[in-house]
Design a protein around this nucleic acid. Structure first.
Lengths: 176, 176
DNA sequence: TAAATCTATGCACCAAGTTGCATATCAATA
DNA sequence: TATTGATATGCAACTTGGTGCATAGATTTA
């Protein structure tokens, strides 16, 4: 139910082809809602059937033709209604923690390897977010739409910072 | 692929019926791997077919009979091999952030409501974790298996703390 | 004694997500 | 000119996850 809304959310900002959307879902919205191009194309068909978006073939020169989608009034209304609805808690799924939960079954070195791998992943993510953060000058003076996007970025920064702090703690603990 | 391993992880600690497992997945492992009782029963069938667990009917008095599962040597080997494998990054899915991303489409009051709802959810979660944390005396002197479990709990605490800090920041920002 | 609650297991159907494949246009590079 | 890479879209098959329902033994509570 929520992939459709994530797509509407992107289209609320600008018209996109499926291909454009797939790129948005790899960065930007992709930071908090993962989707493959397959899912996106399939969902676009449904959204158009529902009348929430409108597709139109666009001839291009220098590259293949594309189908461009715009959000309809009904789509926007749908999106607004969804935002106001109570938010379902995202079902937790963390492979690393599951592994650590039974970490005593493997050599400590294996655990440390995994933790260090995670640390470098989260370090990388944090660096990406920090880079984007710098593009926002004077966060307090942003128009509302950008301020909202800025806050989603800030969430990512809190998230990654928290993970990194934990990685350090866990690695430290296990090395004792 | 990973629900099976989460189940094996629980069974590595103690024999369980499907019902017991369902309760473990509501708390404990459930804090980082969500699953319904339906998924669990279905997966148990597969795990038994693969020979990774062994099921046996147990007569009980005072309550219905149950089927009790133990992990096999093959199952433990499987689990150990899985722990050592590279860990797939968990695909992000956060409904609230998706909503906030297009938050300018609704009144600020709606956003604040949602954020305050999240804040209270995460406050509750943190309180739960803190309560469990107190059960661990002298974390540095725990045997390895408990220390690993303690670290998963610490991850939850970092996670919830980070979320709460962000909630405060976001609410503060939007109230300006 | 009736109803609610806890223990215990499972089917059927539907929705969502993943993987691999298939196709095609056009630009740039080797 | 052949290949690579970016643009662009999509099908088919499969796995996983979610919802609702169905059943049933036993205890507790009203």
């Amino acid at each position: 139910m929520a992939l459709s809304h994530a797509i509407l959310a992107v289209l609320a900002g600008r018209t996109c082809s499926g291909y454009d959307l797939a790129k948005q879902f790899d960065g930007s919205v992709g930071f908090f809602w993962h989707a493959t191009h397959q899912q996106i194309y399939r969902e676009l068909t449904k959204l158009e059937e529902n009348g929430w978006i409108d597709g139109e073939m666009v001839q291009q020169n220098g590259r293949p033709d594309k189908k461009s989608f715009v959000i309809t009034a009904a789509g926007t209304a749908q999106l607004q209604a969804w935002i106001a609805k109570p938010t379902a808690a995202s079902p937790m799924k963390d492979e690393l923690l599951t592994k650590l939960f039974v970490g005593h079954l493997v050599p400590i070195e294996t655990l440390l390897q995994q933790l260090e791998e995670q640390r470098s992943l989260h370090t990388e993510n944090l660096a990406t977010y920090r880079t984007i953060e710098k593009l926002f000058k004077n966060p307090d003076e942003l128009p509302l739409n950008l301020r909202c996007q800025y806050l989603t970025l800030r969430n990512g920064i809190h998230y990654e910072t928290g993970w990194l702090a934990w990685c350090e703690e866990a690695i430290g603990q296990l090395k004792t």
